[in-house]
Design a protein around this nucleic acid. Structure first.
Lengths: 233, 233
DNA sequence: CGACCGCTTGAAACCAATCAAAAAATGTGG
DNA sequence: CCACATTTTTTGATTGGTTTCAAGCGGTCG
């Protein structure tokens, strides 16, 4: 993990995307002075499960998966985080070891903000704390929905749902494919299913004309019908 | 839902169990004056999914399930809440409709605290806000674990896990059974499985000497071996 | 190595029927 | 009219059988 000198938080547009937008000029200055910017290569680990974090990571660029290893050795991806997301927030606030691992899916640039700076703002700026709280409620709702989907939907519906989510969350590449190229393994780790089942489902969806695939690249052809299918219509 | 006159928040021991413990004397007084206490019978609905809440419910007594209805008509129980839990917090803070329904599993007593009182304290008392934030991180972690379990564990392991959870969370009755009598339907709604599979699993666990059942009542005989089994040993 | 395919096996959903227990309604004597 | 026993109804638990779904494994291909 490379550490390089970077711009000032005050000028960083990324912060508009997250709770940091609630910070004052002076708070931003203070954070800017103590932060370090790291560049992370695809496949690199930002932190592992059970680690003690001394701060949070603000994603400036790239994508990471947040996953949890199960007893039987299979990963479950709980969330994908891209530009604007803050990693490790839960652990730092709760003052607990991380319950998730973060591994880059694309080359990334992240800013590390030390714990004490974060806590300082949490303790003094109620707007900031409220923003984090709001963010947390979002994540909780997302998790609740995921619980529902895992227990009630078929693998095919879940795969379709993930594809649609990826389609809405990541820019398309030049040829209209979803701009995040995931391995089948990663997809199955999100869906919570065996790799083969996931692959089969993808080819099914392809044969049915919902999607088009080319290696790792996936293009959604009929988002609306896909949505109907997901909801069982 | 009956409304009856009740004691003062200042004297209520329940608040030691939740974020309300961070409130000052005067804040508690203000909340006490605007709160109403309701008594709710087993099976009654506290709120439904998609409702707009004007406040939160602090559980003084009893147990409720928080569930979500899926497209195919099956409920998924996301959480059980007992004494000390605050219901509707997420929706009120995020200013959104509820994403869960709350139905009493036992006779309950809850205090309704209006939204504006809650927001007042959130806006003025940073310790309070931090407490709520902490609570939220807990719930998020719990939800993440649930996601893992649902996708990676067998029905039998999940059933065992729920039983152990119930065993640890609810007092025993006079004869040593878990003090919360759930129908098989409710258990399967927690586990995220069909009723029959759940029943079969229970009889299996019974035959294997892990548990003893008598109607709705369940007694855990070997918590340790059960734990080993859950973790796949 | 990652993507893909075929095949087998096991697990869990789904369906239908029976059985048991609890709750509601009814009836009877005091 | 009430206390209490009795019947009826409803609800939930259980079991058997069938079908569907997805996991697991082996193997091919680019």
């Amino acid at each position: 993990m490379d550490t390089l000198e970077q711009g000032r938080c005050e000028n960083c547009i990324i912060r508009q995307l997250n709770s940091l937008k609630a910070l004052s000029k002076s708070e931003l200055k203070a954070i800017s002075d103590s932060k370090t910017t790291k560049s992370i290569k695809k496949g690199d680990t930002i932190f592992t499960e059970g680690e003690n974090l001394n701060g949070v990571f603000c994603v400036r660029n790239g994508v990471t998966k947040l996953s949890k290893l199960s007893a039987n050795g299979k990963d479950q991806i709980v969330k994908l985080a891209k530009k604007g997301e803050v990693l490790g927030q839960r652990s730092v606030i709760a003052n607990q070891k991380t319950n998730l691992a973060a591994i880059a899916l694309k080359d990334m640039e992240v800013c590390f903000i030390p714990k004490h700076k974060l806590n300082e703002s949490i303790n003094n700026n109620i707007e900031f704390t409220k923003e984090i709280l709001l963010k947390m409620t979002d994540e909780l709702k997302f998790a609740n929905d995921m619980i529902m989907d895992l227990s009630q939907k078929t693998v095919k519906q879940r795969v379709a749902q993930i594809l649609l989510y990826l389609n809405n969350s990541f820019d398309k590449d030049d040829e209209g494919f979803i701009g995040l190229y995931l391995t089948r393994n990663d997809i199955s780790d999100i869906v919570g299913t065996a790799k083969e089942a996931c692959i089969r489902t993808l080819t099914e969806l392809k044969n049915e004309g919902f999607i088009f695939t080319q290696g790792k690249r996936i293009k959604i052809l009929k988002p609306k019908s896909l949505l109907h299918f997901i909801n069982g219509i």
